[in-house]
């Protein structure tokens, strides 16, 4: 920038210094966790900041003892099911609200939007019983079904659909394309970027569920990584390095997902902000 006439030197030094200080603060908990998970039990309390001894045994123990592999698998299965269904149900209902004519449309839309205002914590109590009476405790459907539809996704996609000119839809039906054809050829391609964002949003929200899986899981085989970490926590605080190793293992897969889908992440998390 030619306009910039300020003495650049010290300014960028200050900026670097600030960046480094903030980075150290933010990385501190992660650093101590990694250090602890690489230390044998008898060394954890000494020099907690210095990686003065090294072993992979603790990570191995956490993996086998805590059955973290199974928990991660369960979380992945549930998150993928939830994401897939949320995308499909959102497209379908957003399409219906945008392009179909049917009675009581506004009423139904109001119902959808009303659900946005109900925090999940309020419904958990009753949902626990519903899922129980359906025989779905300790099942993937129990973990996933309450989250298969999202008014948020419906709203988001409808915002995009509404930008498609009505004539385009009329013309398509003239051409005999029909609604399914129009959806496939025009509507869905148009919202593809939003879908990526919504998908990642759904995936993260499902992956991070804590209260629900701890409530409806009574079999170890069906714990998710979050409820599994809770089990590990109640196991033994006298082995902090074991718990730390568990958290590292739990964090790595999602880190990989985020690195791979970094662009969708930014769009996903900001999806709500751009739409007004």
């Amino acid at each position: 920038m030619a306009l910039d006439t300020t003495p650049k030197g010290w300014r960028s030094w200050v900026r670097y210094a600030l960046l480094i200080v903030m980075a150290i603060i933010i990385l501190f908990p992660i650093y101590t966790t990694i250090v602890a998970s690489l230390k044998p039990g008898n060394r954890v309390l000494r020099n907690p900041l210095v990686p003065d001894s090294f072993t992979l045994d603790v990570l191995g123990d956490a993996w086998t003892q805590g059955r973290l592999g199974r928990y991660l698998w369960n979380s992945a299965v549930v998150a993928v099911i939830v994401t897939a269904f949320q995308l499909i149900t959102s497209i379908a209902s957003a399409y219906a609200f945008s392009f179909l004519r049917f009675p009581l449309k506004r009423f139904f839309f109001a119902i959808f939007m009303a659900t946005l205002l109900v925090p999940f914590e309020v419904t958990l109590l009753i949902n626990r019983r519903t899922v129980d009476s359906l025989g779905w405790l300790n099942t993937y459907q129990g973990l996933a079904v309450p989250f298969l539809a999202t008014a948020f996704g419906t709203f988001l996609l409808r915002q995009v659909f509404m930008q498609i000119p009505k004539d385009l839809n009329e013309a398509a039906s003239m051409d005999g394309l029909g609604h399914w054809g129009f959806m496939r050829e025009v509507a869905v391609p148009l919202v593809r970027p939003t879908l990526g964002a919504l998908g990642l949003f759904s995936f993260l929200a499902s992956w991070n569920q804590y209260l629900w899986p701890t409530m409806i899981t009574t079999e170890d085989d069906m714990n998710t990584i979050q409820s599994g970490l809770r089990l590990l926590r109640s196991s033994d605080l006298d082995k902090p390095n074991l718990i730390m190793a568990g958290t590292i293992i739990a964090a790595v897969p999602i880190l990989v997902v985020l690195v791979v889908f970094q662009r969708q992440l930014v769009r996903g998390l900001t999806a709500g902000a751009v739409k007004g």
Partner: peptide, 8 residues
């Protein structure tokens, strides 16, 4: 996640 962060 909240569990990971809290345990850290």
């Amino acid at each position: 996640s909240v569990a990971v962060a809290s345990l850290m």
